[in-house]
Design a binder for these strands. Sequence first.
DNA 1: AATGCATGGTTACTATAAGTAAGCTAGTAA
DNA 2: TTACTAGCTTACTTATAGTAACCATGCATT
Lengths: 106, 106
Amino acid sequence: MERLCPRVESAFALFSKKWNGLIVHVLLAGELYFCDIEKAIPSLSARLLSLRMKELEGEGIVVRHVSSTSPVRVSYSLTDKGRAMAPIVNAIEKWAYEWIGEGERG
Amino acid sequence: MERLCPRVESAFALFSKKWNGLIVHVLLAGELYFCDIEKAIPSLSARLLSLRMKELEGEGIVVRHVSSTSPVRVSYSLTDKGRAMAPIVNAIEKWAYEWIGEGERG
DNA sequence: AATGCATGGTTACTATAAGTAAGCTAGTAA
DNA sequence: TTACTAGCTTACTTATAGTAACCATGCATT
């Protein structure tokens, strides 16, 4: 019985916060505006998206870019730490295609 | 902008249910009794562990074994579908070691 | 026989996280 | 003026998670 490492625990905690995985997933495609993420994940509300982006920014996973135009436009991109999550996200995707049935709902 | 596949969405939903990732992680070591999982993940309560095991069993990720001894002992092991999650769990572990600082909390 | 402990839970209750709906400021288009 | 977009926030409701106590069964001690 391995002892659980606190770093591993906190990584799992990050993934167990709803939408975090999908947000990283869509941002792997590149820098996106707030509204683009909303459109990419239709069932994620603006409230939670806003919350999650702040949290992910605080954890150094995404960076927020505010344009100097008017009205302001806000875009987000992954940091190195965020891009390093690609293998996780890809592994989840691969597993989903191999093991989740057509009409199934998790 | 890729369209999100429902199978991928449900896989992310699975990981965003609290404790699921860690439960699979500890079960990758082999078949375990209920109490062993409790000890391996001290902050996970019996109530939630019981709940999660039922859900994971329902999703075909774990199998429940009930011994015919008295008192009954219950153990759990991963199915092929569950073991197929190993790359995900390993990727999370690897990322955690590389990107999460010593004293940090997710 | 009584006490305490372990296993594998359940029940009742509280706290936190997530979902829903509306509103807000600034600006564009008709 | 009305309607609509972007990027939020606020207030409120519902769902999920955490806490504590309890239960039946059996074992080991005292």
